[in-house]
Design a protein around this nucleic acid. Structure first.
Lengths: 167, 167
DNA sequence: ATCGGATTGTTATAATATAACATTCTTACG
DNA sequence: CGTAAGAATGTTATATTATAACAATCCGAT
């Protein structure tokens, strides 16, 4: 249940230097389109463009890097444009904000509401999303014990990904 | 083991509107002094001043709020001064940065290295530090399963504290 | 065809943080 | 003591991240 049958495409795995990344991007865009259609939300040109750029790698991307890259292809783009697109994408769970990096990463989880946790490699910068049920439960339980009404969790784990750790 | 014998002074508890807060501040300063003496670190006037201001409440404080408050008592203080004091205090584990708030909170944990987790009330803004062993273990285990070499964790839980939840 | 809401453009600025170099303070040592 | 060396702070400037406010445009429903 936790393991993917397709190594390299697992949702919680780190990705090697050369995996078929086009597929990751394709999958993300397909999912975004389907999700927006279902919800009657508009995946406009700019929003799709930002999503593509975010999925350009498995690293978290800074808003102003997106801005620069957009400004290469489009005519000069301003901060609000990028932040609005990010806001939309986050609202629909297509992108996550990584608070400890002030950066954004594509959501590789399910459509459903999920408590995302992130493994962040300090070496290569790759970010891997987990839906760690055990962590989620431990968090929920401890919050409950403290009489705390839990609404949202930020779990960001910094260290070395398997590839960088063994290097 | 998880429960404090002294309600109102427990390390992982939220604090009521009127608890004897002078004691919290006093405890924090005493601890800071002892710790710095032990380590041969200098708890200078400015560092102590910043620590006091942070402990003025159990809420997370923004760097520029510290700046403003310092500028009331001292002659105009500039950002680097505050950030340097914060850097020192964080390096010695006397203060934590709450990434999801871009703000800082006094450390109420032990001197030892601890994996702090934060309960953050969205209503009143109070922040309560936990050292949730269960969470820490779940996190460590899941990281290990992913072949991830864990170095640092950011666990910030947003919701309503007991007082605000029942209101 | 056109009205109304959603989206994007544009300008300005707020909020957060650090670089780089000058000055002052403290301490250890002669 | 006096002073040299390193630590800490002051100062100036600027980088980075994010949002407010209002104008223009697009797009779908009537």
């Amino acid at each position: 249940m936790a393991k993917s049958q397709d190594p390299g495409a697992g949702l919680t795995a780190f990705h090697g230097a050369r995996h078929a990344h086009t597929r990751c991007v394709g999958r993300a865009l397909t999912r975004a389109e389907a999700l927006c259609r279902r919800r009657g939300a508009r995946l406009t040109y700019m929003r799709r463009r930002v999503l593509e750029l975010i999925w350009d790698s498995h690293k978290a991307v800074k808003a102003y890097d997106l801005l620069d890259r957009l400004s290469e292809s489009e005519k000069s783009v301003r901060p609000p444009t990028v932040y609005r697109a990010l806001e939309f994408l986050m609202a629909h769970g297509l992108v996550h904000r990584v608070d400890s990096l002030n950066a954004f990463v594509g959501c590789s989880g399910s459509d459903e509401q999920h408590n995302a946790q992130f493994l962040i490699c300090q070496e290569c910068g790759e970010v891997s999303e987990m839906d760690g049920a055990a962590i989620g439960k431990a968090v929920a339980r401890q919050a409950a014990e403290a009489g705390f009404n839990l609404r949202r969790q930020t779990v960001e784990l910094h260290g070395e990904c398997p590839a960088c750790a063994t290097r």
